[in-house]
Design a protein around this nucleic acid. Sequence first.
DNA 1: TCACAATTTCAGCAAATACTGAAAATTCAA
DNA 2: TTGAATTTTCAGTATTTGCTGAAATTGTGA
Lengths: 173, 173
Amino acid sequence: MIAEEEKLKRARDEFVAQWGALGTQWGINRTMAQIHALLMTAPQPLTTDDVMEELEISRGNAHTNLKELVAWGLIRPVVKKGERREFFEAEKDVWLIFTIVARERKRREIEPALAILSKCAGESEGIQTPEGKVFHDQMRALEDFVGFASKMSDRIASMKHGFAIQLATKLLG
Amino acid sequence: MIAEEEKLKRARDEFVAQWGALGTQWGINRTMAQIHALLMTAPQPLTTDDVMEELEISRGNAHTNLKELVAWGLIRPVVKKGERREFFEAEKDVWLIFTIVARERKRREIEPALAILSKCAGESEGIQTPEGKVFHDQMRALEDFVGFASKMSDRIASMKHGFAIQLATKLLG
DNA sequence: TCACAATTTCAGCAAATACTGAAAATTCAA
DNA sequence: TTGAATTTTCAGTATTTGCTGAAATTGTGA
């Protein structure tokens, strides 16, 4: 039934478009999120040209964002024998996707925060004025909390899929 | 000792500047993050003019971002008797700050994602082609996972400070 | 070694986002 | 009321971020 293919194409296009829009909120650029969506739902690995055509973007843009996705570990290059061009396929396991994104966010958001907090807590150590104490205590409180969050994030991200879900389900039960 | 005040001022200025830079990573604009940092470490509530002066920004900018922070619930207006102007003070409890930010991020990042995934999963339901099944399964897998994360987030954010930490510590132990 | 295919880089341009400054609206005391 | 203090809005501008398209580089088979 041809209508089904049409239906699928429409659903998939919508997913790609919307996922791209969402990327913006997540601090990921739109194109990168769109390419990721495209590859996550592609039955076969795609080339740079496939991506350019499907999303109507330039070669430079496609190239840059494909490389960025590879750097994140969300997609990987695939070699096909007899083919000179590079193909790409996405990691599809949701738990793996989650751990990759979590790791990256930790690196970009949590670790720099921790560095700042430690530094400021250190610099304000031992200041005797009331304002100094308030500042120092606030820095320490933030540092402790963020450090704690950081450890949690590591622990969870290093768990096996099934275990994490099981554990969480128990928590929620 | 005057040197201590100088030391504190420097540490605080650094915190404000760096926290602002970090805000960018978090999808929060720099000024908003700076104002938040300023108020979190202020011993007293501040006026719009205090903020303008301290950060060297325009009235419009200060105003807009103060209102935005109030909307988030990260700061609150304070009335001082005999004073016509509005003062602002920040929530300083780290657990409360965390729950507020978590709630906001869930609203902006998780809920829209869930909406898209449900829609696309629904639209691809029952398509008989192999590609259709692959797409539908991927949508469902993502939907399940994101929905699960959403519930977790709610549960944790609604916990009391002490309880959450205690629980997490047990998990990590 | 050459010719061609494919990848990579990047200067210039475009779009999105944030900020200023001043005018308009609001609030309040007299 | 009136007018001074304060808050709010927003058109215009600046800054940041992302994209294009073409040139430079790299890789490959003959």
